[in-house]
Nucleic acid binder design. Structure first.
Lengths: 337, 337
DNA sequence: GCCCATCTTTACATCGTTGTATTCAACGTT
DNA sequence: AACGTTGAATACAACGATGTAAAGATGGGC
């Protein structure tokens, strides 16, 4: 009763046809007599035959598996994104395998180098610590789509969100509320932190455009983009006496952490300090107050990423493309929306 | 320069040895002359050879891939769990592929039936809507470990948390604060919702033990375990005039939703209403107030699940086991901790 | 110098599937 | 009646790896 070993051969024997005919039935080949087809299908059902994917993949040179490599799976933004990617991939008959890099450059290098080579047909990669050099050094030729930012010069497919414009828009929104001392939480010292750099750029441009002074004490660096970092940064900011009347956080988690600190210290949001984030994670929509944020279209990011990857898998030599995905500023309670 | 097609054969040709010798070097076979080994390794490096996993898997009958099937990947509890599972699997050289069932019974049946048969070596499955009958009808013989509750009679491996005891402990904690009208949010009408049933049972036992009356108006059913459901349920509860002075929510997300409603209505937490949840997700540790909750040891759940699965993969006929994983009551601000 | 034991390497078959080329039968056309 | 055309089914090789068995090389013991 060893079902694990039922192959085309067994079905063929039972149905009294050749192996190839069974294969043809399984693959919906047209030229099969209805009678034969019925007989084969009965045999398949009786033996509970399932194709061996390893064999099929070996033969066809593809596995139907793509990898999604994200820094942290248990970060709401990436969890939500992963969900959309899994769904989009399924629509195309692809299976997603998730790699967790922990935002470590070493792990990201591994992923880029293709340590899953010959297991996956393609890779959707959201790097965080990877440098352009790492990417340029990439030898592996597995099709890859990069998420998040056009940070690399090399010829790679990209799905991007205009971080500068989005950050600028969020900051200008704070300006429009009449706030003058607008802080930014989320700068990173790290060379590789391109996303952080771009959002900072957007923030700076907004201040400039509004004719507000740039005050370095209002720009607070963080280690990572978690709640704890946001809480800590907000505390630093308040302790430094910089007295902001608004804060633009480079991620919603940072904003939620900052919010926690503000409320702990008895400050009103948005009364004393208005707060805006980035990512539009679900948490922000249910906190008190709800969080004003930049909402990148995650479904579009996921869908386009899978599309782009599928195209590249179909034609390896196609020129690298860059797809820009829209975002929206969601105004909620934390800025009095 | 088609690297995608470098096989043992090519390496063998370059090194001037047989295919099998290269295979032996790759697999660390002992009886290979240092000279040969060096030569082969040089060839491998020169051609950037990587083993074709499909071929290897076909030959060996295993893929090294296990699936983790969860209802919703973007639910913090499952995202955190998934992260631990991925990490634990990696320690054993296993790769995790994530399936998203969307809590639909149909999708869960598919997963149980083994629609990934012959692709995965094992399955870690956290079902939500699956009935015991579905499970009994399972024909697929892929090793499987069930997470969450000992709901099924059949001989399947389980990782369980004592939901009844945990729910009881959480409720008794509310009692110990002097609360008398303790509500429960998270009951489900659904037959298949075993987890909900058990937590309700624990809640009821706690009230009984404390000598408090059971008031059905204090037990609020929900559709799902999201923030929105919690918010809605809390609103119903308040509108019904049931006037609770404490609420035990069957998940942290429900609790966060409920919290949102309470604060919107100007009620103080824990002053007017004390609040406890279940899951210990990160969000609860940074909200205002922070959330008292039952904290199942997710790392242990993930680790044990992978261990158990690995054991079962190694010995299919081994008797089914059940492993109980510990939990802790984390007392935080929402109950005045 | 012969034989056996041990080490090193090899040829070959095999895993389960599908592409190619082929056979065989049935059909309509001239 | 001989022909090509099309349909249905098949045999065989191949994908890239590894297990098996056996061949060749080396050395020790007698």
């Amino acid at each position: 009763m060893d079902k694990a070993r039922v192959g085309l051969k067994d079905v063929a024997r039972l149905a009294g046809v050749s192996v190839k005919t069974v294969s043809n039935v399984v693959n919906g080949y047209v030229h099969v007599t209805p009678a034969t087809r019925t007989r084969v299908e009965a045999a398949i059902k009786e033996l509970d035959y399932r194709p061996n994917l390893s064999a099929r993949n070996l033969r066809q040179g593809r596995t139907g598996i793509i990898a999604l490599a994200v820094p942290e799976l248990d970060t709401p933004y990436f969890a939500e994104l992963a969900r959309f990617v899994v769904a989009a991939a399924e629509e195309r008959g692809l299976t997603v395998l998730i790699d967790h890099t922990g935002a470590s450059r070493e792990r990201e290098q591994l992923v880029a180098e293709g340590f899953r080579a010959r297991l996956i047909d393609g890779l959707i990669f959201s790097p965080l610590a990877l440098t352009p050099e790492d990417l340029a050094a990439r030898m592996d030729d597995t099709p890859m789509v990069l998420l998040g930012e056009r940070i690399y010069e090399g010829p790679a497919d990209h799905i991007v969100v205009d971080n500068v414009a989005a950050a600028k828009e969020a900051t200008l929104h704070l300006v429009s509320l009449g706030r003058r001392r607008i802080a930014a939480i989320g700068a990173k010292d790290d060379e590789a932190a391109e996303t952080s750099r771009l959002r900072l750029e957007g923030y700076r441009r907004a201040l400039e455009e509004a004719g507000l002074p740039q005050d370095d004490r209002l720009v607070v660096p963080v280690e990572a983009y978690h709640r704890a970092d946001g809480a800590r940064a907000m505390a630093e900011l308040l302790d430094s006496g910089a007295a902001p009347d608004a804060v633009f956080c480079f991620s919603d988690l940072l904003a939620l952490g900052a919010l926690r600190t503000l409320l702990e210290r008895g400050l009103a949001v948005p009364g004393d300090v208005a707060l805006a984030g980035f990512d539009d994670i679900e948490d922000g929509r249910y906190g008190t107050p709800t969080l004003t944020t930049i909402s990148p279209d995650k479904q579009a990011i996921a869908g386009q990423a899978v599309d782009l990857l599928a195209e590249r898998m179909a034609d390896v030599s196609r020129e690298a493309r860059e797809i820009r995905v829209p975002y929206r500023l969601m105004i909620r309670e934390s800025t009095g929306g």
